[in-house]
Design a protein around this nucleic acid. Sequence first.
DNA 1: ACCTGAACACCGTTCAAGT
DNA 2: ACCTGAACACCGTTCAAGT
Lengths: 192, 192
Amino acid sequence: MPRVTEKYRKARRDEIALAAIRCLERKGVHDTSIADIVEESGLSTGAIYSHFSSKVELARYIVAEYLFPRLDQLERSAGMITPRDVLTTMLAVFTDTGLPPRIVLQFWGEATIGGELREEMLRTVARLRSALGAALMPWAELQTSDAAAAEALVADAIRAVVPLAQGYVANTALFGPRDPREYVDSVVAALT
Amino acid sequence: MPRVTEKYRKARRDEIALAAIRCLERKGVHDTSIADIVEESGLSTGAIYSHFSSKVELARYIVAEYLFPRLDQLERSAGMITPRDVLTTMLAVFTDTGLPPRIVLQFWGEATIGGELREEMLRTVARLRSALGAALMPWAELQTSDAAAAEALVADAIRAVVPLAQGYVANTALFGPRDPREYVDSVVAALT
DNA sequence: ACCTGAACACCGTTCAAGT
DNA sequence: ACCTGAACACCGTTCAAGT
């Protein structure tokens, strides 16, 4: 397969995906139809189906390619960082990139039904967890000299950080934007 | 209007709503059609539309009548309770009543689009916030003798407790059930 | 190989006609 | 007044036919 074709396919897929995202922001997951994406992209129904086998496949592509593209931001953060820092850094992705929490929340809703979208979501979360683990290890090793205990500490922290991030997403999606640092501080203040 | 008719209408609405909930648990919000509810309830399409003006109206009814019926549990809890206690009590509603977090999460997703479902959601959350406020006031008054400062303390606590509860819902909806107390403890441990 | 757009099965909703 | 179920506009998806 020549390289030009590959590039062309990727460009077309992105063209469709970006048109779809514009529709999603305007109308939401539920109310965006293939006909809307056809109109927004200027392509035909068949053209879209020759690049994505279904609406769910298009959704998977958007999730994988646009909704969680900044996990490397976590992986690059060096030095000793606490669970609090990790959480704040993670949430900053939303304010920094303009990634709409509304769309993420809607995808979660759809993912609870099962199917391929759920599989894609679980894969993404697995990647996220391992990035979190790597970022937290230096901190855990400072708490204890036992390697197994450090692993357990990291696992516990992840069990807290993931739902805390989910709470931020659900909350801002429904009630409007909020500063990540203020959110974390408010949670700490309330629980201690 | 005679009372018997009123009662009959309520009974029919509940009959339809419960059939719908059985479908929702089986297939999710997205994949449950009116035809499914027709089959599950044994009624006709027109019968459903003579009790609910649309699918969204049915959804609103389910949310208002079945998804948040236990707010009074909070309002009844007496004595000095901390934000931590309030959060744990609130989350216990899910484990105690078998209310499926998956359905709640899906409704949140739909509510981000706007429309009547969003209005209904905001009304329910407003009720929830005032119940939380009432439950937390004795605790706040123990922290400070200034009435305004106590109010502010309550407001801050609510700003933390609501997203923490949302995080629990999103997390259990996607990754399976979890003990509320364990969740709260894990968050406290990670952030302090 | 990519693209077109009519055709298909199914969706939510309406409404004339029944009781 | 409640209910029936055929009819309607629209949905996601397919596929013969074009380039």
